[in-house]
Each structure stands twice: as C-alpha cells, then as structure tokens.
Computed example of a mutant assay.
Amino acid sequence: MKGTIYLAGPLFSEAEREFNRKLAGMLRNAGYEVFLPQEDSADNSKSREKLDNATLFKKNVEGIDKSDLVVAILDGGSDVDSGTAWEIGYAWARGIPIVGLRTDFRTLGIEGIVNLMIEECAVGICINVEELVLFLEQR
C-alpha cells in the first residue's frame, strides 16, 4: 500500500458521487487506500436522516487525520465546494499535503486557477485524472 488518501470533493449530485467513485477506484488501482466520505462516513442523503451532523463531521475529521495526503476536487467555477475548502484548510493546518484536481477548464484569469488561498496550500494542482495519478507516482 502506498498510503492513505482522503478524497475531498462535492458529493451532492449523482454526477459528483459517480465521479468520486470512479476517481477513488483509479487511486485504489494505483495502490492507495482511499477514504471516500460518501462511502466511508456514509455521508449521503439517506444517512443524514439517521446520523446527526456531529457524527458525520467527526467521521470525516478522523478520515483526514488518518490520511497521508488529501486529494481535493477543485471543480465548480471560481470557488470550490465549501466543505472541500474546509477539508483543505484543516489538512493544511495539520501538515497533511494537498493535491488539487481541477478538470474544469475555466480559470480566474490573472489570479490563477482557483482561489489563491486554495492554490497556495496545494503541493500541486493537476488538470486531469491521468496527470493526478502520474503526479502521485512521482512524489
């Protein structure tokens, strides 16, 4: 096993959850253990009816704490998902490296690819899944 990755990203639409599953599968095939909140903390619409927010929060924080690296999906226009932004900030404060994945080709122009606070705490930002896997292999 090459290490544990916490996969941070939006998980509210069917398309987001499917992309997250696909990406987690690719990372697992590359030899990583992956904490995927929508599965590992059961963060989805059904579990939110049964579990309280504090329990979901605790499970996700524990997932980050146990990870060697955070891969953060940075798609969604000029601002990333607010939960993902929090996970990035928490990981950065804990000294856990963050690698961004930005498949959305829109940029902020002269300001950079994403918000500078997100961009500056990442050890790298990749533009597609293949580049991400290659970047991780070279770390």
Rank of each mutant, 00 (worst) to 15 (best):
D65G: 04
I73K: 11
T55L: 12
D52C: 03
F57G: 02
D68R: 05
V61T: 10
V61M: 13
A30G: 08
L36D: 06
K46V: 14
S41D: 08
K50Q: 12
V61K: 10
T55M: 11
G63F: 07
D75L: 00
I73M: 12
A54G: 12
K59W: 10
D65K: 15
N44V: 05
R48Y: 03
E39L: 14
A30E: 03
L36I: 10
D68K: 07
D52Y: 07
T55E: 15
E62Q: 12
S45I: 11
N53E: 13
V61D: 02
L36T: 06
V34Q: 04
S47C: 11
A72F: 11
Q38P: 07
N44F: 05
N53H: 12
P37L: 04
P37F: 02
A42N: 14
K66T: 13
Y32G: 05
K59T: 10
K66L: 14
I64P: 06
V71M: 03
K46L: 15
Y32P: 06
G31D: 06
S47E: 15
V71D: 07
N44Y: 11
V70N: 04
D68H: 13
N60E: 15
S41C: 04
E39C: 05
S67A: 15
E39I: 06
I73F: 03
I64Q: 05
D75C: 00
L51R: 04
N53G: 08
D75F: 00
I64Y: 06
Q38C: 08
A42E: 15
G63Q: 04
S41M: 04
S47N: 15
V34T: 01
K58S: 12
L69N: 04
Q38Y: 01
L56I: 15
T55N: 02
R48V: 09
F57C: 10
A30Q: 03
D68F: 10
K46I: 14
K66R: 15
L36K: 07
S67W: 11
S67F: 13
D65S: 03
D75Q: 00
K59M: 15
G31Y: 04
D65W: 11
G31Q: 03
S45C: 06
I64D: 07
E33F: 09
E33I: 06
K46M: 13
D68W: 10
N53W: 14
D65I: 11
Y32S: 02
Q38W: 03
Q38N: 07
V34L: 01
A54S: 14
D65C: 12
V61A: 08
K58A: 13
A42W: 13
G31R: 06
L74N: 01
E33G: 09
K46T: 09
E49P: 04
N53Q: 11
T55Y: 03
K66H: 14
K50L: 14
F35V: 09
A42T: 09
F35R: 08
L36M: 09
E62I: 08
P37K: 02
K50E: 14
K59P: 06
S45N: 07
